[in-house]
Design a protein around this nucleic acid. Sequence first.
DNA 1: TATATTTGCGTAACTGATTACGTAATTTAT
DNA 2: ATAAATTACGTAATCAGTTACGCAAATATA
Lengths: 317, 317
Amino acid sequence: MNFFEEVGKVAIGSRLRMLTDKVTEDAAQIYKLYHIDMQPKWFPVFYALVQGKEKTITELAKDIGHSHPSVSKIISEMLKKGYVKESKDKADGRRNVVSLSKKGVEISKEIKDQLIDVNAAIEEISAQAQHKLWEAIGEWEFLLEQKNLLRRVIEKKKERDSLKVEIVDYLPKYQEIFRSLNVEWISKYFTMEESDYKALDDPQGYILDQGGFILVALYEGEPLGVCALIKMDDDEYDFELAKMAVSPKAQGKNVGFLLASAIVEKARSLGASKIYLESNTILKPAINLYHKLGFKKVAGKPTPYARCNIQMELVVK
Amino acid sequence: MNFFEEVGKVAIGSRLRMLTDKVTEDAAQIYKLYHIDMQPKWFPVFYALVQGKEKTITELAKDIGHSHPSVSKIISEMLKKGYVKESKDKADGRRNVVSLSKKGVEISKEIKDQLIDVNAAIEEISAQAQHKLWEAIGEWEFLLEQKNLLRRVIEKKKERDSLKVEIVDYLPKYQEIFRSLNVEWISKYFTMEESDYKALDDPQGYILDQGGFILVALYEGEPLGVCALIKMDDDEYDFELAKMAVSPKAQGKNVGFLLASAIVEKARSLGASKIYLESNTILKPAINLYHKLGFKKVAGKPTPYARCNIQMELVVK
DNA sequence: TATATTTGCGTAACTGATTACGTAATTTAT
DNA sequence: ATAAATTACGTAATCAGTTACGCAAATATA
């Protein structure tokens, strides 16, 4: 048992499996004790049939939380013992309707005493334990139903990665990375256009000197993401969010989200009331990100970019 | 989930299995998330090796609570990946000593972040739950270690059966069952002797009228056990416990224990100070029963029975 | 009304564990 | 010193579940 204490709760899966084995290992002998000719694995199916008259294979599977092939196999075994009977549903020829046979009903009476004693034994254990296993399982089922372990781990990973990401202001030394990261994705999905070259070759003159901003995301000190806020000469919009690019190396490290959030925050601190952006719907992760930040789809703005097929805005205030 | 609430805690085994599945099902994907090329089932072995240098197959099996073939297989898979190395123990040629390879040690570093995040995710679930699963599992492991489920169920069955057993005084209508139950076991293991016939054919004259007693055990109203207390003409002993017989139909229903206890109690209520009995060591369940009641082995008493190879006494006071 | 999609369920293959068994090495007993 | 028992561990068979797949029936859609 020592092992588990050392590894920590990561091992909860293994530990659960072992407890399950321990609880289950005597089951066959318990049936023998009551002279009941039944395999432990049949029990859930059997019990589901005792309750609710006849049921189809799929209904049984859903009831007991197994896959349907599992139920199918169990039923064919119980059929051999004569505990159940099958019949095709007349209205729906696919359905195999199963119910307890006369012999099955007899067994269900015999099994009652056993259930009483097993229940009493388990209640005894529960009573001796300080912590309630039954209720704890229920809670875990509920919590995992709401958000499974994978998603929780992904979140934790993001949180931890975020701590390693630092968002800094643009400096001339970042010009090369600002250019290359953008060229990378643009030429992967589209082709570079006139306006791209202008902005990427001379960010100082084309963006910063016009009253815009550029932020750079450092992951453990290495610049892996860039994003620009371009001053717009427009009645409605103050800035355009553009030239956002994150290195594939930084994928899944939450860099995009942190970068975009920072740029929105920047705009807000500058007193902007509305931000505009242009993108393309084939860039799904990007669109999702904008959506998450609160950007809404708009239309009708003229654009110099051929690749633009969606326009979005964010009310900053 | 409804199902489990209805069946009651009997289904705790199934429910545990399902929770185990749910906790485990994402494991493979979690490894993928961190780009770690490892199968979830390797983890316990892997972890055990990270901790404690080199270990043999059997040591690993004991550490992680698996069977040794399981570990053997896992090691051969990890060997293919180059994560571990094997070597025969020079001092003991049977032992296969396993340790992490250089590549294995590297992986163990990469895996650290993953462990941190998984642990955090599980702690988060724990924090959201009112009942502590981890601690509850620990308690159940402990309680089942002390007394496994089978033994607990056996005890509960005995308790319940005891309620159905009633011990009553001998009546003439029980003479036939008194005779037949005794004839049954005596002639199964030995042969009937002169003294047997005397007592069984005329319990009234041979036992009761001499100051002895006979008790009958009824199981759900049916007489299934008998036991006699024969008055002895002896300095040391007041009564002999004899002609105890329980029907095979009542096996495992605690009838023997209740009957014998009642007869001892009877002797006590009559002011007896010492009870004597004769038996044979091939009747193991009977000897165990006498032992449980407190009878001790003695020797030296002359006996009319050929089948007697053990004599016992109980100090009643 | 024809066609595509969905549903029910059986069979087959796979999975992660187990028990059973055999062999070789070591230890214990005679 | 030899025989008997125990131990280490690999292979094979088994087990209780799963996923993958395919067929046939029913339902939805064009």
